[in-house]
Design a protein around this nucleic acid. Structure first.
Lengths: 340, 340
DNA sequence: TTGTAGGCGTTATCAA
DNA sequence: TTGATAACGCCTACAA
């Protein structure tokens, strides 16, 4: 079975019209008469013509596609953000290429390379937890291509970020627990190589200070915040003298920790109150339902994509070092309601 | 900021070595001496050379990339299947382009078109619930490109499918409820335009027949099985004279229905027992935990991808009309345990 | 409104 | 082992 790809030249021969005219007709150029356009289009359909985007992209040096790299597409936050990105891209006539880094630095580097060599017009990325070097982004910027970081900010100079204020909200959720009467609060922190988790942890600390509560290193657990980490951290909690609250940097680990604690006779929120982060669907359904932070996911995707398209259209005259901060929302549920 | 893309010609000029040799060196051809290879590679790094994949794909007519189209990447089953696909593709040196049809026929058509015009070497697809016409797949096959359907089979002649036996498992879950003593069982069915849901429904029917229970049309609700549909169906259940069990074709609608019923004082499983489909993470966490069917998601992705690569490598000499059937697993949890 | 000609960056074929 | 040349399919000055 041979590749019987039909090209504009086949249409050109069949109709005895020059291929340049065929090209123009298929691109709906105003410089072709309606009559020939009709002829060409119907012949194209008849022959089963399919444009070769590779050739046209090579020729025009415009791919009309953007790349999206996220840690994992299975996370609710990311799949919602992608939905926002796709909607915006669709309206702008762009294709979206989705990839996941699986929070792996090497993989992220390889993906950036693939993006580059496929000449996408721009990249939206939420960087991996393990990324501490930024050379692969610099290389990219050198080519004059716009790159925009969302959710997880990048310390790189001259970069555009769309994020939430993780310090502020980290402080806010901690204060919420303090208001509920918690005094001995454990913090599930993510890798401190990531700015995002650093900020949440700083917010946690700031809230304690503000309310004259002691900050104790042994009450801060750093992990990758996966399901298994939650169980480990629950065990550590049971080994601590006194704990009445937990501020977790994500829902996944909070829920597996709560599950383990419940199995060990701990009542939530009476004995230990919990707050999470991300508003994963499971957090509304778990019992007790988990107090959490809803980040503007879909909206963040839309805004990030719009900014990227602006930069693409400006062709480098707009490479502003800007940071857009969106407002998250604290959703109070049963896991943190100590006072009725 | 200009596009200062470095090409093999730039390296060629700088080194006064012909571009064809440069190309060979960069592809690690054995027909270039190690000495010149080293020179070329170090110059390439120095200049920040990035291969233009578009040009190379155009020239070789091989893209080393495959397309994946799924209804929604946020569904646990699909993101796991994609993980399996990516792992296999990575080993085979292929790029994966992920897209979601959002269960929309027009969008699916457009995506197939994009795949075609970007000349992917093959496509893995789980078709949209609303897809009843298959012309866009035929067109694709005409080009001699392999396409493989997974999870949701396609009735198209000469197509390869990787699926589970939905009839058999549909029958099995129903019999599980019957064994628990259920007699008046409601069925949440998906769109009957989809073979997959047809089969599950047939399995449901077969189980009733086998156990001499009546099949009643008014006990079968057809919907898109979204969250909202679950609530609607719960209301319908409350309006029926007698219901003691529900076989749902997915977890999402089962859970929202259970939630609504619980709010109305129905006890699960004592009053109504439930079984779902898909093993979404939330099903293990909901109370009562939901009995469900775990499809081999990751494994299905791996197998589907391997089969696709076989077809790609065979270059059309292997277009066998084959169907691979994988074994699902019934996970019994609390929502269906009537007998202690 | 249509045709001519050249090139996007790479690779394959042939010759040296 | 290396070089010269043409071609992949498309688009776009420029000319007619």
């Amino acid at each position: 079975m041979k590749n019987n790809n039909v090209t504009i030249h086949d249409i050109s021969k069949a109709l005895e019209i020059d291929s340049s005219t065929v090209s123009r007709a298929l691109n709906n150029s105003p410089r072709v008469s309606q009559k020939t356009k009709d002829k060409i289009i119907s012949k194209a359909n008849e022959l089963g013509y399919q444009r070769n985007s590779l050739a046209s992209k090579l020729r025009t040096n415009k791919t009309h596609s953007i790349g999206v790299i996220v840690p994992r597409i299975s996370r609710h936050f990311f799949s919602s953000a992608i939905a926002g990105i796709e909607e915006t891209a669709y309206d702008a006539g762009y294709d979206v290429i989705i990839c996941q880094s699986l929070d792996d630095y090497e993989r992220e580097k390889k993906l950036m390379n693939t993006m580059l060599s496929n000449r996408v017009d721009g990249v939206l990325i939420s960087i991996s937890m393990k990324t501490t070097e930024h050379d692969h982004f610099k290389e990219y910027q050198k080519q004059g291509l716009p790159i925009l970081f969302f959710d997880r900010p990048c310390a790189l100079a001259n970069s555009t970020n769309v994020i939430i204020d993780d310090f502020k909200i980290g402080k806010e959720v901690t204060e919420h627990l303090i208001e509920q009467g918690c005094k001995d609060i454990v913090h599930f922190s993510g890798p401190q190589t990531s700015q995002l988790y650093q900020q949440r942890t700083k917010g946690f600390k700031a809230a304690l200070e503000k309310h004259q509560l002691p900050f104790r290193e042994e009450y801060v657990f750093e992990s990758s915040l996966m399901k298994e980490d939650g169980i480990e951290m629950a065990k550590k909690i049971l080994a601590l003298p006194k704990v009445d609250g937990v501020v977790s940097s994500n829902d996944t680990s909070a829920i597996s920790a709560m599950q383990h604690l419940k199995e060990n006779g701990i009542r939530i929120p009476q004995d230990i109150a919990f707050v999470g982060f991300s508003n994963e669907p499971v957090s509304a359904v778990f019992e007790p339902s988990l107090t959490t932070v809803k980040q503007p996911d879909f909206e963040m995707g839309k805004i990030a994509a719009s900014l990227l398209f602006e930069q693409i259209k400006s062709e480098g005259n707009l490479r502003i070092n800007q940071t857009k901060i969106l407002e998250p929302e604290l959703i109070i549920r049963n896991s943190s309601r100590k006072k009725s």
